[in-house]
Every structure is written in C-alpha cells, then in structure tokens.
Write a protein that binds this DNA or RNA. Sequence first.
DNA 1: CCTTTTAACTTGCTTTTTGCAAGTTATGTG
DNA 2: CACATAACTTGCAAAAAGCAAGTTAAAAGG
Lengths: 149, 149
Amino acid sequence: MTTSDEDKDPQHFTPKRDTGCPIAFALDHFGDKWSLIIIRDLLMRGHETYGQFLQGDERIATNILASRLKHLEEAGLIHKQKNAKNRRSNVYGLTQKGLALAPVMLELVRWSANYDPNTKANPQIVARITSDREGLIKEIIQKRSGKTD
Amino acid sequence: MTTSDEDKDPQHFTPKRDTGCPIAFALDHFGDKWSLIIIRDLLMRGHETYGQFLQGDERIATNILASRLKHLEEAGLIHKQKNAKNRRSNVYGLTQKGLALAPVMLELVRWSANYDPNTKANPQIVARITSDREGLIKEIIQKRSGKTD
DNA sequence: CCTTTTAACTTGCTTTTTGCAAGTTATGTG
DNA sequence: CACATAACTTGCAAAAAGCAAGTTAAAAGG
C-alpha cells in the first residue's frame, strides 16, 4: 500500500437517514438495486471502466450507471482517475472504504450460495470463506488495491 | 430449536435477475431501501409486530411496510403467524434463511461503525464482532429463534 | 351490549427513481 | 480525414416510494 493522497474525506456526503444506525448508514451508501453490483464488479471481477460495468451480466442502463458512479464517488467508496496513456478512458477503483466492504461481500456470497439452488458461485471460493476467511479477504483487498491506492 | 414444519420452501419466489450471481440473488431478496431495515428490526431489536416496525427510527410508510413484509415472506426470509391469544395481532419472525443473514448484518455494522463518525453502534458489540464473531452470531440467532421456529 | 380504541392493513394520488432509446462530445484509429 | 468508440447526457415513459386518508375486524371500556 503506497500512501498517496487518495481516499480523502468526502466533505460533501451526508447520509439521508441520519439516525446513527449502522444499517441505515450502509443503506445510504449502497442501498439500491445497482450499487452493490458495481462494487461486486470492482471487487470480484476486476472491472474498472465505464464500458466494462455497462457490459456486466445484469445490463445496467447507462444513465443509472452514471448516476450510481457519481453517488459512489461522492460517498467515498470509489474514485475515478484519468488514464494517462489514453485520455478518453477513465479508470475506476475502490477506495479503502470501498475495499473494506470485502467481508460484507463474502458473507453475501456465502448466504446466497447456501440458499440459491441455481447459484453459480465458485464452490472453491465458497469453501474458502469458511476455511480461510481472513486470508481470502486480505487476498482480495490486495488484488484490488491499485498502485495508486 | 424445535423442528416444526416451518421454513418450507417458498415455491412462488423466483429471483428477478436470474444470473446465478450470489450478489444479484441477495439483491433480489433485500436490495431496496427498506428490507434490511425490517430485517435489522427483527434480528437486532426484537421487533415482531407491524406496529413496532412502523414506529422504528426511520419511519417507514405503512403501504411500503406492507409490501415489503409481503415480499420478504414470499422470499422465505420471514413468516407471519397469528397470535393465538390476541387474534388481531400478527407476529412476524425470521426463518432460518432470514436468521442466516446475521453474519452479513454484523459485517455491515462493523463497516459502518468504522466509517461513520456519528455512529451510534454499541462499541461493546462492535468490539465483539472482532473478538468473538462466531459466538456473537450464535447468540443472536438463538435469541431470535422463536419457539415456533 | 354498545361505544370507543386499536392493530393491521388498503386506497388514491403525488413525487421520485428507474429504465429505455437516442443523442452528444472528445478522443483515438486506419 | 473519415470513422469508430469511450463516456457520458437528455427526454420521456414506467415503476416504485411517499403521504394522507380510509377500512376492517377484534379487543377493551363502561
């Protein structure tokens, strides 16, 4: 982890439901139908461009994608960088705050794998959530921490 | 845990986004602004009647509450029982499938407690998520498993 | 009993969010 | 220089959320 000046506090983000409840706080960040899909793409599938998100399995609409990316950025979960080599492509990445959702994501995977008879969750990963949860979390976070993170 | 005939498979529920992805599966169950609040009330606060949900901190609208309860029941996360003693009050409870969200819930609490400067999360609980996660999960599940569960 | 409360919803209507299709702009590419 | 493409934006229709009021059946009080 290089300590650059990223992940600065998003001054502009104030939760809607300001009750202090942790669940409500989380929902204010990603409590809609698409945000977690985007976070999944970033965290589990290595997607990092607008076009890659657009072509995900669930086919998010382009205007919704734009609005969710904006919201997630304002909420401090992701950041957008210009690609120095190719100035028309932007690269999205998870901040520390976003990467810290890995444990939540893995518990969701475990739960769904357990209750969805048609799950396509990778059995090896699912098994490892139980056998080596901490190791898996660290591995994922390391894998998805860009050099600029 | 008494093994009654509850928690039967909800034949009628088919996920909207049938991609096989565990995250999408989870979102089809509770990927909206209110479902997780209701599950929180059931799991962490011991709420179990319509009126209790209505009076939660976030003040869900009554028609939305009714529709979410119906959906959660169809999705097999909760069940509704008549109260034998008082026939006009219904008692809601989590099914096994719903109780199994405890780990997800706790990771959400941990994440939010960590990133919300104004969190009201109980510090003792938060500490225990790290020090005795498994024990805490079992304790919560046991506490919220009604006799009829 | 008979009136009043109350729990658990439902209905009607307005506002907000989502979704679809098409259009725009600034690069990049042959 | 013509064309392709990444990353959006805009306009409008459809769906969901939110608000206020109404309904129903059962319990509680007198």
